[in-house]
Computed example of a mutant assay.
Amino acid sequence: MTRAQDSGREAEDLARAHLERQGLRLLAQNWHCRQGELDLVMLDGDTVVFVEVRYRQHAAWGGALESVDARKRTKLTAAAQQFLLRQTRWSAHPCRFDVIAVSPDPHHGPQLNWIQNAFDT
């Protein structure tokens, strides 16, 4: 596993722990299909939440939130549709897409910015 993969995994673990502290329940982590991958699938009350976790070591490469462009949103939407087709118990529930941006802060540790309803499908 590369250093970037390690950082990504750590960011996902931080995001998951943060969401669980906020009362969300994990349904799936790193869920794969032909259309792509879902970092976290959580349940917030009765809402299925598809969470994209973005980690950026250097702001010069663009912020984590900006990296969820139209192409990435299309892939996430397609993967979410596959998840709901395969996990039919969740298909009648409301859904939303959230983004958690994780950025390093050498003085205070990693900083999380949770954007609910980050984009519409």
Rank of each mutant, 00 (worst) to 15 (best):
A92E: 12
R71M: 09
G45P: 07
R96E: 13
T47D: 04
L27E: 04
V68F: 12
V102D: 00
A11G: 01
R16A: 05
R89D: 10
D105F: 03
C95N: 08
N30R: 14
E12T: 05
A70M: 06
I100T: 03
T88Q: 12
R86V: 07
G109M: 09
D105S: 15
A59I: 15
P94F: 11
N113G: 04
R73P: 01
Q87K: 13
N117I: 02
Q111H: 09
V41L: 08
T77A: 08
V49T: 08
L76H: 02
Q35I: 03
R71E: 11
C33L: 02
D105Y: 06
G109C: 14
S91N: 14
H18C: 10
P110R: 10
R56V: 09
Q22A: 15
Q116D: 09
A78Q: 09
N117A: 11
F83P: 00
G36P: 05
G45T: 09
E52H: 04
D105R: 11
M42V: 08
S91G: 02
L26R: 13
A101R: 06
L43A: 05
T121E: 06
G62F: 10
Q82R: 15
H108W: 07
R89T: 13
P106C: 07
V68M: 12
V48N: 01
A78T: 03
S7R: 13
H32Q: 15
I115H: 15
P94R: 13
G45V: 05
V99F: 03
R9F: 06
G36L: 02
A4P: 00
T88Y: 09
A79V: 05
F50T: 01
A79F: 07
F50A: 01
Q29A: 14
Q87Y: 03
N30W: 05
L85N: 09
T77V: 15
R56S: 08
Q29P: 02
G63H: 07
N30Q: 15
W61I: 08
R86Y: 07
P106W: 14
L38Y: 04
G62T: 11
